[in-house]
């Protein structure tokens, strides 16, 4: 299957999902769908760096919140700005931060990069908490329009549609990377960085491309968040849940292909939503952590790996 038919199939699937949700006409379905699709984007973004090049990013919340807060800023400056434009800006901002952090830390060994990203999350949170323009520690309110532009219906419909579009873009990018020279370069870095460098793979440049893309998609996934929650404060924007879910879902689904994060996000996201409704919201956050630990121990290749024949 080549690139274009794959994208067309993705768009068709997204259209069917959106049509189904419209036909159900239940705003809860949109809320749940939005969360799950958002995790597909986050998981895929994490997987571009983590799964393909083997560098573990723990600072997901930093990039995610940069996207979210750049929307807050833009909404305050230009209230009429359309959401897709905000998403592009948020993605670019997060991508730049990703490249900058990567440039400083990627020359270190992999473990140091991971810890540095975790520290980055704390620092970005400190900066946002001290920035009064976006509400500081008090948080910011974002009033969303009552009716969705272009498609009509509730605004959540529009958000869900936008997220589905982002998801298609992220998955198409991930799959294109997998099958291109870029993807082979990433895989070479993951398997043996010294050998890759010695064979002429421009490792630092490739790693920067990966951090930029990964951070950018995380920022894009975060950009619609203020409109989804309508009230954003640092504690919720930087919630560790996003980070754990975005790491757990690809690891549970399988990091070797674009399908892994999708499988993981649908399964774990669905299970969490089910537990949130049936048991309590405290249990549902524990699920991702426990499942992740269990999966990395007993099924290192993830669910997708279980179905692949061993070479």
């Amino acid at each position: 299957m080549r690139g274009t038919p794959f994208i067309l199939i993705l768009i068709a699937i997204a259209a069917v999902i959106f049509g189904l949700a419209r036909w159900l006409d239940n705003s809860y379905a949109f809320f749940v769908g939005y969360v799950v699709v958002q995790y597909i984007v986050l998981g895929t973004a994490w997987n571009i760096l983590g799964g393909y090049t083997g560098y573990v990013n723990f600072g997901i919340t930093a990039f995610f919140a940069i996207g979210a807060y750049s929307s807050v800023v833009l909404h305050k400056l230009v209230p009429a700005m359309p959401l897709p434009a905000m998403i592009v800006v948020g993605g670019v901002m997060a991508g730049i931060v990703g490249i900058g952090t990567g440039y400083l830390t990627l020359r270190l060994r992999g473990v140091f990069f991971s810890i540095a990203t975790l520290a980055l999350a704390v620092v970005v949170q400190t900066l946002i908490t001290n920035w009064d323009f976006v509400g500081g520690a008090r948080g910011a309110y974002v009033l969303r329009p009552r009716v969705a532009p272009l498609i009509g219906g509730g605004y959540i419909d529009y958000l869900f549609l936008i997220m589905l579009g982002l998801c298609v873009a992220a998955l198409a990018t991930a799959r294109a990377i997998e099958r291109s020279a870029l993807g082979f370069g990433f895989a070479a870095i993951r398997d043996d960085e010294a050998a890759a460098e010695a064979s002429g793979v421009p490792t630092l440049r490739l790693k920067l491309i990966a951090t930029g893309l990964s951070g950018g998609f995380m920022g894009m996934a975060g950009a619609p968040l203020p409109f989804y929650v309508t009230y954003l404060d640092p504690a919720s924007g930087f919630s560790l849940n996003y980070a754990v879910n975005a790491i757990a879902m690809p690891l549970i689904g399988g990091t070797s292909s674009w399908l892994g994060p999708v499988v993981g996000a649908v399964l774990v996201g669905g299970l969490q939503e089910y537990l949130r409704v049936t048991i309590s919201s405290a249990v549902n956050v524990l699920v991702a952590g426990v499942l992740m630990v269990v999966f990395v121990i007993i099924a290192p290749q993830g669910i997708v790996g279980l179905f692949k024949r061993k070479r």
Binding site: G50, G51, G54, V56, F58, G110, V111, S114, R190, L240, V244, I247, A248, L251, T255, A282, V285, L286, A288, G289, V290, M292, V293, V296, I297, P300
Partner: peptide
């Protein structure tokens, strides 16, 4: 689970990150 399989970087780190999260939620 990890060192003997020579699979330390990605999954090993995630393992500890998962432990961090489980400990935190457990404490909460």
């Amino acid at each position: 689970a990890f060192e003997r399989r020579d699979d330390q970087s990605l999954r090993g780190l995630s393992f500890f990150f998962g432990l961090l999260f489980i400990a935190e939620v457990g404490l909460i």
